[in-house]
Design a protein around this nucleic acid. Structure first.
Lengths: 259, 259
DNA sequence: GAAACATCTTGAACTATTTTGGTAGAACAT
DNA sequence: ATGTTCTACCAAAATAGTTCAAGATGTTTC
């Protein structure tokens, strides 16, 4: 297994468990304790987790504005994201207009949507999603203007907001950095602002969120769960989380993850 | 198997897998590990993927770049474009604002510019160029809005035009499909319109054009050679062409092609 | 066209570097 | 006190970098 893959898996475990011992990690990943120790130290150094005696605890999401580098973000929960994306794409009807928020989960949806053979119109503020969708000649792809923060593929700022403000769409696929039973939140004001616009511009808001995002709070709230028409998540979501959302009458669909 | 085909297949694998070891690639493609290593290093250099010890992981672009092999080939295999791009990047001064037209030659300039360690502001209508530039934290990258035609990474249309119309930049790097001693031309009205705006918005217009574009005419003229402040081309340009341009008082610089 | 020549690419052999898993003693928690 | 975890080190394995000869490709010359 590749070092990078190993580290991503460690973060996945930590996303689900909050706390793990090095021993457990060593057994779960089938690698020696020495290597686990080195990986965990590395991730600690890089700020992805915190070390404790004998193990590691997740810290990334506790820090409300922390964003992992793109390479790692896309590797974390990649199976869950792909599964969620595949189901999301199936919800698109021929001829509809669809908004794709930026993010790795919505990117998975775009990748699946690009393989559909139905025509639809798409708009996104993520250049990676855009170039993905534009592979399919049936998809009319538009991109918001805006400014990219370095290391990301996300367009933000006044131009992006204005582009979205003029629109009316059938569906918005929105991602989120964190979700509680009531609130969706993300890491920056600008991101939050734009997500709010996406949600306001669409008849049907579909939230794509893998199970590791429950229940956390990030820096900046951008909407309420009640404003979402459908939540798509993976089957690793906890019973607590499903109950809390269903109590609020939120339509929740779980997607089985391929091994 | 052709080198270009090999590299395209590596990107294809990487689009599906997120990470692969060199060993796996070697087996999957039936080529030696040495060759895989060379290909992967090459693609890393060109920004299509990132290397890790023992393998490669997909960057934003790799997972979306199911570009036809021909597109990859023309984008990264051309020594002339790379050489022109490298020289173009050197013309950027710290703090300047720079417009990057869409196209493979301007993309080469963007790749070189992304490796500079000077801060500047960039605006482009090509999402590939944008994701290239945004890898450098010193570069403030903006993207025009617009619509993508399928199979391309180019943004066109009213939104793109409007984005550019508001700007004033120090430099515009402009590509062209064809050039005669008097006229620059390209393949579509929309493209031509946007290129015209780029040229009007910049104090200094620098035309990046490899020698194969002399002297042809494409469907739609978008400007006169006299409106260009500097023409950068490669040394394979014919003597006729240089003479014709110099007769018109056009500043022409030839770039030696690296071996 | 074909032969001769130069150039580039490939795969393999070899060396250097990095990574890995193990071990021994020190530090730690209960 | 006792078992566990940490640090530091080592040898083995894997990967990266280098070099080179054989083959493929491209160019020139006749």
């Amino acid at each position: 297994m590749l070092p990078a893959k190993r580290r991503a898996r460690i973060l996945e475990v930590l996303g689900a468990e909050q706390m793990v011992s090095l021993k457990d990690l060593s057994e779960a990943l089938g690698i020696s304790i020495s290597t686990v120790r080195r990986d965990v130290d590395y991730l600690d150094e890089a700020g992805y987790l915190s070390r404790t005696h004998g193990g590691a605890i997740s810290t990334a999401r506790a820090s409300t504005t922390f964003e992992p580098e793109a390479a790692i973000a896309s590797a974390i929960e990649s199976a869950a994201k792909a599964a969620i994306g595949a189901v999301a794409a199936q919800l698109i009807q021929p001829g509809q207009s669809v908004l794709f928020d930026s993010g790795t989960t919505t990117a998975a949806a775009a990748r699946a949507a690009a393989k559909l053979s139905i025509p639809f119109t798409a708009m996104t503020n993520d250049v990676m999603i855009a170039s993905c969708l534009s592979q399919n000649a049936l998809v009319q792809t538009s991109v918001t203007g805006g400014t990219m923060r370095s290391g990301t593929t996300t367009l933000l700022g006044a131009d992006a907001v204005n582009s979205v403000a003029r629109l009316r769409a059938d569906i918005a696929f929105v991602g989120t950095h964190a979700i509680t039973p009531e609130v969706l939140s993300d890491t920056s004001l600008e991101l939050a602002d734009l997500k709010r616009r996406f949600m306001a511009a669409a008849d049907r808001v579909i939230l794509l969120v893998d199970s590791s995002k429950f229940f956390n709070r990030a820096f900046c709230a951008f909407g309420e769960t009640s404003a979402v028409d459908l939540v798509l998540t993976d089957s690793r979501i906890s019973a607590d989380a499903t109950a809390a959302l269903k109590d609020r009458g939120i339509d929740l669909r779980m997607v089985d993850i391929a091994p």
